[in-house]
Design a protein around this nucleic acid. Structure first.
Lengths: 205, 205, 205, 205
DNA sequence: CCTTAATCGAGACGGTACGTCGTGTCTTTAT
DNA sequence: ATAAAGACACGACGTACCGTCTCGATTAAGG
């Protein structure tokens, strides 16, 4: 045979690529250690040495494939624009998953961090503070549950409707969802709680 | 031998009881058709004839054991009281599940209706209308996403923290959650959108 | 639906035809009560009422399809011709079976009479007596094992090589077998034991 | 835990012993892969990896338990003694089988070699040659069907009456059978075809 | 530079569950 | 009463994976 034997990072990367490919082809429920080992042309033991079960393997594969969730604070010039930008980024990431991947990971590793929407709360708080600086809001002193509200709603919708997010046709639907979350729920609430003193209650477009 | 052979509803009930017992003892991930058949002293075919996989079996077992989600409209005399009552009922039902049951069902039968919080939207709309009749609200003409907001948030929290809901200690935590959902998010939003004309915007403590 | 319900002989004939068809299509090992019932468009109970297991069903199907083994004593004018005629008839019947049918019946119903070559001993004894009458033999007073020898050898070959007897190409092979049994074994032995007094011992070429 | 995991020959021997035990206890028809695996405390795959079905497993178990069919040429000093010795050995081996084992193997693996009486033709030819050397026969130039005649007849009887061979009472019956085959059929025939020139036709005891 | 310990690639092992098929019995409905 | 139909309790089938263990081959490191 040809090649030199793989070790360390090279081997690890091969395995994680194989795992991601298996998930994408067959779905998480049919992700098997055996299948990954076969596709990566290695032994099962090599995988078990690194990850205790398929849930941890899948999480590692997600991180390896998608990279870390970027958390830069957008600067579009308006509160609504900033929020829309950050939610859209979150939704885009969500669309790269296969539907069953969420559920499966929650079922098998509920305590693990799938990386789906955990960094955002800090970002949203920063966005709110920027809005205060621009005079769009009176203050940013909001209850935690309010701050995490848009991300929570988006994640919840992602969980409920993940099986539809994969299709291309979902793009407009998701865009509408983001608009609803902001215009029907979050912005009215934030303005009610911390709107600027001069133009308080005008929520209409 | 023992009496006559079981059929129809009697047999079905035995199987669903067995399935529920297996879930409660071993957890959903270790629910197996074989185990259920053995506990119910019947054959696997009898189960497969009725439910195509363990997910559908589990859903049927839930319905059989917990009964339908009651959807009477409470009449406590205040909007907050009515909402609290209905959310508490929903949370109580959620606590009867084992944590992994949610995740597993979502993973394996995402389209199926687990019965967790599906009847409520109509109930909440009725509660809002009663509040209008009492003069607590100016109107009940709210966007659908707003109406479903409290149930969505509660369900989302249930999904994220299901593994903690089982303990007795969770009671106070859940009570606090319900208060937060209502007082920090839903009531301020509803009052901002449809508060009564006479005492409109006073949400501050 | 259409027809009147079948009963008695009509029903029985339908079932036996179905059983034979199943044997011919799938072979005896894959003959199932369920398959027969389905093909005959009746219930399994109806079959079990008549035959205790598939072996007895198969035997009944054989008798029903092939009819009784005729046992007329041939009159060709010579001992060899008579024997050849009767052995050929026996072999022809054997060829109508599927190979596995023998083995299966022997395995599952060893005591039962499959009808394969059980009538013949008497016939052969009669043939020998006719030869005595014609002067070909001195007497017919032979040990039972000698009398049954040609049928035994033929049956044994049938058992050993049944899987080849089905093919058309087997015809010549079987004809050769019959000649060998008679010319190499049976006729030399019979002539040695009971040859005519005038031309007694000339067996050499 | 118990010692080291079994592999290779040790494992194979355990499985074949288990298979033979199952056959002896329950009979071939009730030999199941599952039962063998359970008795050998291993998995079904381990068995299927080695033998495609229970027929091949049974044949392997026979060989493993009974060992190869010895084929030494006996030297008793007389043609009849030599033949009797070799036939008796063959019958003894046959008696170690359970009756249904023959039939089942023939039914399910007709092409396979059960080892029952396949080595003998060469042995019989050697015995005949020894008889020629001693002057008992004029030559050993006999048709193949004649040479295989005693083994064929014995095997045929074994097949027909296997269900009775197991009992102890069968010993005398079998001894009589061997005598009949030799004294009524084979020896008269061989003497007729190749008897010594000086004392040709004396077959009586 | 060469031994030595570790890991790799591969696959067998003991085991659980799968989903299907067939058995022989039992029930129900409709002749 | 029995035919037709099919459900029931059961056992076995052959397959897929699990997580562990064993075995040579390779390879990186230390003496």
């Amino acid at each position: 045979m040809a090649g030199t034997r793989r070790r360390g990072e090279e081997l690890e990367a091969t395995i994680l690529d194989a795992a991601w490919a298996e998930i994408m082809e067959n779905g998480y429920p049919r992700l098997t250690m055996e299948g990954v080992a076969a596709r990566a042309r290695t032994g099962k033991q090599v995988i078990y040495r690194r990850w205790p079960d398929r849930a941890h393997l899948a999480i590692a594969a997600i991180r390896h494939t998608l990279g870390p969730l970027v958390s830069e604070v957008p600067q579009t010039g308006s509160l609504r624009g900033d929020l829309l930008s950050v939610l859209r980024r979150m939704a885009d990431r969500g669309r790269q998953y296969r539907p069953d991947l969420f559920y499966g990971l929650l079922a098998e590793a509920p305590d693990s961090d799938t990386g789906f929407g955990t960094v955002l709360p800090g970002v949203i708080r920063a966005i709110l503070q920027n809005a205060v600086a621009r005079g769009e809001l009176a203050h940013a002193d909001l209850p935690p549950r309010v701050v995490s509200l848009p991300a929570d709603l988006l994640r919840y919708e992602g969980l409920r409707n993940a099986h539809r997010w994969g299709q291309d046709a979902a793009e407009a639907e998701i865009e509408q969802l983001l608009a609803d979350i902001l215009d029907d729920v979050f912005l009215p609430l934030v303005l009610a709680l911390a709107g600027p003193p001069d133009a308080p209650m005008d929520v209409s477009p």
